[in-house]
Design a protein around this nucleic acid. Structure first.
Length: 284
DNA sequence: AAACGAAACAACCGCACAGCA
DNA sequence: TTGCTGTGCGGTTGTTTCGTT
């Protein structure tokens, strides 16, 4: 028995959305909230596929979207994130408030790719173009963000650590990650100075926001950047006045409100001065 | 002003993942 | 354990807009 189609294609509109359709969708979601996309079109009186409604809402109708041109800071941030994450547009979007994965993907393909090529950089590998024939691209090798070196040093300082190394690989571009877990609340600071991409394994934080709640079902949402930290902290912006998770910084380590130690504190892209405004961002 | 090509943007499609019965 | 379902993601395609001749 095959899977039922997400919608009755014969009776659904396709193509550009009309103002009336947008209004219907907005009105319905304001009244009933997001979710249950399959049944939403019928309930909202829309002749659209549920997936289409979801896409329209997420990419264009959500009230927290930032429209308009990308800034130079956003450009550079996207480039850095792409060099580490590959074509993980949703993850990249998660670090750019008000931007959607689709928007970033399009922007990458139309602007940044060309920008990098003009700089003589291969947009796929982030290496100089004349190196790409001799050096395998990161997607296929271990452009692993190796945290092992710093982990060893950190390990010297503690006798109760366990080291877990995981490497993930995906078809679209892999992100190798040596994740060193010291205890359920501590992840060793990676040696990469620019980006805080740590994944935490920790008990649920009591003051979770809606965005930190687990998915009701399905999806591939990753938990990086959540796990009890506010978004400022997930970006390494613990000094930010916008920090809302109660992390107290002491030197190069932090202590959370629950008393757990945290390694942290480097200047994420030099953004401790809030070059980018991440206020109000919710991880998707 | 018209034709054409390139660029930019919007939307669709197929697949993968996670939750649940 | 397995299959179904709902949802999210990345790649691709279609459409519109802009610039040039």
């Amino acid at each position: 028995m095959g899977r039922s189609p997400c919608c009755e294609k014969a009776h659904t509109n396709k193509g550009a959305w009309t103002k009336e359709e947008d209004d219907r969708l907005i009105t319905y979601i304001r009244a009933h909230g997001e979710g249950c996309w399959r049944s939403l079109p019928k309930a909202a009186g829309l002749l659209r596929c549920g997936k289409s409604c979801r896409l329209r809402w997420i990419n264009y109708l959500r009230p927290d979207l930032k429209r308009g041109n990308f800034t130079e800071e956003e450009d550079e941030l996207i480039i850095k994130l792409h060099s580490l994450l590959g074509n993980k547009w949703s993850l990249i979007a998660g670090r750019l408030p008000g931007r959607t994965d689709n928007e970033i993907k399009n922007y990458w393909n139309t602007h940044i790719r060309r920008k990098l090529l003009n700089r003589g950089i291969d947009p796929a590998t982030h290496r100089p173009l004349n190196e790409t024939t001799t050096t395998p691209p990161p997607q296929e090798t271990s452009t692993t963000i190796s945290f092992a070196a710093s982990a060893v040093k950190e390990e010297d300082k503690t006798t109760t650590t366990t080291t877990t190394t995981t490497t993930t690989s995906t078809s679209g571009g892999s992100v190798g990650k040596d994740l060193v877990v010291l205890n359920p609340q501590i992840v060793v600071k990676e040696s990469c100075p620019d980006l805080n991409l740590e994944l935490r394994i920790s008990p649920p934080y009591q003051n979770q926001t809606a965005a930190d709640q687990p998915l009701k079902s399905g999806g591939r949402r990753l938990s990086s950047g959540s796990g009890g930290l506010c978004f400022s902290c997930s970006l390494g912006l613990q000094n930010s006045k916008d920090c809302s998770c109660g992390i107290i910084i002491a030197g190069t380590s932090t202590t959370t409100a629950t008393g757990n130690s945290n390694i942290n504190g480097y200047d994420f892209l030099g953004l401790k001065s809030n070059v980018l405004d991440y206020r109000g961002l919710e991880m998707k």
